[in-house]
Each structure stands twice: as C-alpha cells, then as structure tokens.
Nucleic acid binder design. Structure first.
Lengths: 368, 368
DNA sequence: ATGAAAGCGCTAACAC
DNA sequence: GTGTTAGCGCTTTCAT
C-alpha cells in the first residue's frame, strides 16, 4: 500500500490539492482559486494555464474545505413526510434535477410524522451546515418550525409559514383543483358526493376538505356529516374510510379523496365489497402520481405537479440564500392545480343517459 | 441585524465553536475535542465540565471542519437506478434508518440508466468525500464501476463486482425465490408459464430469467421462445410485454414477472384485454413492494426484503470503511428470497379441481 | 492526563 | 491582475 504512515487510521488525503495545481501552472494558489471559481479579473492567459493544470492533475476542489471557509455549503435540505408515499420520490427527483445543475447538493429527509425523527433530522441538517431548507411536509409540525426558525436561515414552506424575513411560502391552489373536481362530478349528475380526508393536523388537508365543502355549498348541495370520512393519506386508511362509507344505508354515487394513495385504497375497498368503479360509484383522487393512470380503472384526479412544486421550491430557496437573486424580495409562489379526467368517474349509477348507454352496450357486445 | 460586517456576503459563522466551550469549561480545545469524541483518557471530572459547557452553549461540532481534518466525512453514498420505482424508496428508507443511528449520513443518487447522470453523480459523491458507496442498481454500468474502482475506496455491489480488496458483494438468492414461484405454479397444475424479463443489460435481470428457465427445465417443462417477453422493469413495459403474450394463439396460463412493477403493468394489460386474473391467468411478481398487496387481486410475489438488503449493505460498507470492524475480512453477504402467495395465482383455467370449485361457488354465492 | 501548536484545503482580505 | 497571508473549526501529534 502506498500510505506513507503505517497508521491503522484510514486517513485519506486529497490526491491533488490546490497547491499542486498552482505549482504546475506556475501561479499562486489564490489565482487557482479565482480561476476555478471563474472570477472575471483573472488574466485569460493564466486562467488557461490553470485549467490545463487542473485537467492534467485531475484536481477536484474539496467541498469541505470550501464550505468551511466560505460559510456556504451548497447543500440544501428537503424535508418530506414520507419517502415511501409515491408522491414524494417524484418530488425529490424533480427537486434534484433542478437543484444539482444549479450547483446545489440536496439532503433529503423524511419525518414519518415522528417528532423524534424530525428532531434528529433537523439537527443533522444544521450539523451539515445546509444553506437552506425546503419543508414539503404539507402541514408542518409546530416544533419543527420553531427549531428551524430559531436559526435565521432561508426556509421554504408549503401553504403557510411564520411571517419572517427569511421565510418563503408556496401557495397551492387547492380550492381551484377541488372545485374543478366537484363541478365535474356535479355536471355528470352527482349529488351524493362523499369526501375522504387526510390526517387533519395538516394544514393542507384541512384546506382540501374545506375546498370540497365550499365547492359543494356553491352548488347548493348539502353534505351530510357522515359523508366526510377521515383518512390518513395512506392506502390502508383509504380502504378503511371507504369501507365506512360503503356501510352507510345508501352508498354515495361519488367520492373525492384527499390524495391518490387514499383513492387507491378506496378502489381496493370497493373491489372487495364488490362495488364496481365507476359504474356504481365514481372515485376522484388528488396529486396525480404516476401510478394514478395505471390503476384499474385509471384514476380521475386533481393534478398538483411535482415539477411546478419543485421548481418553485428551488427558486424560492435560492432567492433566500443568494443576496443578489432577482427574486430575493418575493415571498410567495403560486402553485396551480387542475383536474385530469380519466376512467374512474362517470355518470351516477342508474342515470346513464340513453345515448351513452347505447354506445356502451355496443362496446360491451364487442368485448364479449 | 447582528452581523458585524455590513458585508453583502452571506457568511455565517458557527454560533458557538469549540473555543467557546473550552473557555467556558476552563480547559483546552484539545480536551474538548477528546471529551466530545469520547476518548477514554480524559479525566471524568473534566469531561463532565466539558459536557456541561456543551449543554449550556448549545455547541454542535462542525462536520465540515471535522471531515476536513480527519479525512472521514461520515457520509456514505447510495446509488439506485430509479428513485421513482417504489422498490427504491423503501430501500432508501431502510438504509437510512440503519446508517443514521450508526453515525453516517446518506447521500442518495439515482442514475435513471443515464450515463451522463451517473457520471455527474459519481463526481458529486467524490467531491463530497463520501467514505464509501453502495451501488444498488442491480446491474451496474461498466463505466460506473471503472470510475468508482479507480479510487480505491470502499464499495458495495449487488450480485457481482470486480474482485478487489475494497469491494464487497451482496449475493441475492434469485434462484431460490424464483424456483419457489415456479414450483408453486407447477404444483397448481400450470404447464404453460411465460416470463417477462427486465432490461437484459442488468446482471440481476439475466439471473432472474436464467433462474426461471432452470427451474422450468428441472421440472421437465419446455419454454417456447415466445413465452419469454422482454420488459424494462416499468409498468409501461409490463403492459406492452403482456399484450404481446396475450396476442399469442394460446394465452399462457401463468406469467412470472421480473419485478412487481412489471407485474402491475401486466395486470393492467390483462384487465384491458378483458382477461381475468387469476381465473384465466395467474400472475407472479418479484420484490414484494408495499404496493403489491394492494393490487387487484393482491399480487403473489417473490419477496426480496429491503430490510435484509439495506442491513447487509450498511454492514458491508462499514466493514470496508472501518479498519477494526469485526467483519472487515468478509467479502460476501447472502440475501435470502421467498415466495409470498396471495390472490393473483391459482389453478390453471378449466382445471379447477372439483372440491375447490365447490368451495369457490359457495363463496361466490355469499358475495352476490 | 492535559495543553500548545501544527496543519487539513481552501477563500478572501490585503498588499503590491 | 496577482501574490501573500490569515484564518474557517477541528483533530492530532508532541511535549509536558
């Protein structure tokens, strides 16, 4: 082994440091630093020599050293609630696809709604010196906010956050998307529409439920209390909630779910209780995860685009981190939503208009 | 603002450094360092004073500085192929749940089978000075290996890797699980069993296919070439491959898929072509992702436990990183697999044994 | 057992 | 424009 010290320590020195490059390019280390960091005042001739030396030596700047002295780690935190909920990997992916080319590394953490994990997650992020954190948990635990806000560093929240100078907020248009969904169902003739919520501690969950109730009220449709079932944004909870709704004296003709995982659970519960979707009951989700279109039947759902969300989060974060950022003064980003109609929603059972029924019969005849 | 310099630079100094603690505890910074790192030679009395000062000041060691001088970042890389394939978030989660309490931060990256992304991913990991990398892509691109192996640092691969001192391998027992699946189907009476592969560049994909062919040969069942359809471990490819199989003059009575996403796609294609699962055709997956049990019908699949995989990966990595690790000499870890029977597999169509048929009829009568 | 001091690799202030 | 130099916060010799 080429290690000079017969030390048992696994101490690895940089293969090639800024000094090696400086020596080779016959300039000072400061010039190398400037050239590598593209400071404009460097003589082009010298810069070329530096880059050549960098090339030849295979020099890679040491991030730790850089972060230590500059005070900026170029690391940003991304906190999600559950990495195993398919919505979040999609979000993480988009977030990284944007952040990395812009020069930031992403440190992802999921809270799993566990205060202990959250606590340690924040400590770990602070310890790694993140430049800022995007909290995309859709309903932040108070404790988390408090801990984060203490350090006055750049923070991005979804929906709402404390009104402080370094905090930016992504406002999702829940009302718009859910209203579209309700109006879609109402236009098809539905009047008995149920709703399955997520965990109500989350702001965004309450917002979705309220958007549903408001949209229904707008249309003058009453929502009996038992038509609002409580879920937890998981398949399991969606199943349970749907079974509850199915046990009602009269099955609703449609159900709107607070997210797609809930809707998938509902679909499953309906299959188990031998109710056919959408013939007997229409199901609408929220999020439009990739999986949604592969459900049986493909899920009608309100799309909240990961891409939009990720782009806004990265931009908002940079606006907070970089003093000269063009949007440094902006505090709010709007996130649109829109209904995507697929096959899990149709006319209420027994009301299929004659002309459509004819067509359906013809279709069925072909298939059999 | 409390920033002393009216500098536009966002330079944040540590709120409290080792020096502050040393001053407060009236010891040298070296003693603080030793106490904090639990070096045994420190006088318990002084150590107590140090910890008290740490407590009072809220001191948190600066990871960057620590990494810079010690040469160990306590950061390990985890490379997966596709973070949006539900198997991987589950793996990532388990991996972190193990690594973090053991003092390591995890840097996750997904290659998306894109050499460009892979290249930059590796550069980023090297730049952040990872102590080691686990490559869990299930079929490594050669280029990736080469780049990684150049630096002689700890590496863990799945299935196979170059035989070098710092490289450890996780051997998954594909043959065992797939043989169980084939024997399960054969025992039910299936003789016409098809297989949908993943992308064949991957070693593990070839291993699965070969395991299937071997298991079939063992039972003396021939597999016509057109019964091996090529997929890509995605739902879309599973659908396409299944449609291909469904277009055959005679539909196979069962199909084994190289992973669960493929199986889900197959389920979907069968629904679209109005074939009922498992009545007309049995479907078996591989992985046992969380979603598998929520499919309609719940998927029979070969479980490859994320937890086993993650535990082995973390242990193997530490064995490579830490010179004194008890398993420092071990080079191979075995990962078991086993069949989980659910409702997507049953007797071949038209052969339902009489007694079972009776029971099934009774069951159906109850449901209607 | 403890402290003083020498860097780890780099950036940024300052001098020229 | 370029080089010199002083640290960033910490670990680790080396004396004591």
């Amino acid at each position: 082994m080429s290690r000079s010290k017969s030390n048992t320590q696994n101490r690895r020195r940089a293969l090639v440091s800024i000094r090696d490059v400086a020596r080779r390019a016959r300039v000072s280390i400061a010039t190398v630093s400037r050239a590598v960091n593209r400071v404009s005042s460097v003589d082009p001739e010298l810069a070329k020599r530096v880059w050549k030396a960098v090339e030849e030596t295979g020099y890679v700047p040491n991030t730790q050293a850089r972060a230590l002295v500059s005070g900026r780690s170029h690391l940003i935190g991304l906190i999600v609630s559950e990495i195993t909920n398919p919505f979040f990997p999609e979000l993480v992916q988009e977030f990284e696809n944007l952040a990395v080319p812009q020069g930031y590394e992403v440190m992802v953490g999921s809270t799993n709604y566990d205060p202990g994990k959250t606590e340690s997650l924040i400590r770990r992020m602070l310890q790694r010196n993140v430049d800022g954190v995007a909290v995309m948990t859709f309903g932040v635990e108070e404790e988390l906010v408090r801990r984060l806000v203490e350090r006055e560093f750049p923070l991005v929240f979804v929906d709402a956050g404390p009104d402080l100078p370094n905090i930016r907020v992504l406002k999702v248009n829940y009302a718009g998307g859910i209203r579209e969904a309700v109006q879609h169902l109402a236009a098809l003739g539905h009047r008995s529409i149920a709703f399955i919520t997520g965990p109500l501690q989350m702001r965004s969950v309450v917002a979705r439920r309220d958007a549903f109730l408001t949209s229904m009220a707008e249309l003058g449709i009453e929502v009996p209390a038992e038509h609002v079932a409580i879920g937890a944004h998981t398949m399991e909870s969606g199943m349970a909630a749907m079974e509850q709704l199915a046990a009602l004296p009269e099955l609703p003709t449609a159900v709107v779910c607070s997210n797609d995982m809930t809707a998938i659970g509902a679909l499953h519960a309906l299959e188990r209780t031998t109710h056919s979707v959408p013939k007997e009951i229409s199901v609408v989700g929220f999020d439009d995860i990739h999986l949604a279109q592969f459900m049986l039947p493909p899920l009608t759902t309100v799309r909240m685009s990961c891409k939009d969300l990720a782009a806004a989060a990265v931009e908002a974060l940079r606006a907070g981190i970089e003093p000269e950022h063009p949007k440094a003064g902006v505090k709010e980003w709007q996130i649109p939503t829109r209904l995507v109609v697929r096959q899990s929603s149709t006319f209420p059972r027994g009301t299929l208009p004659a002309i459509v029924k004819q067509a359906a019969d013809r279709h069925r005849a072909v298939r059999v």
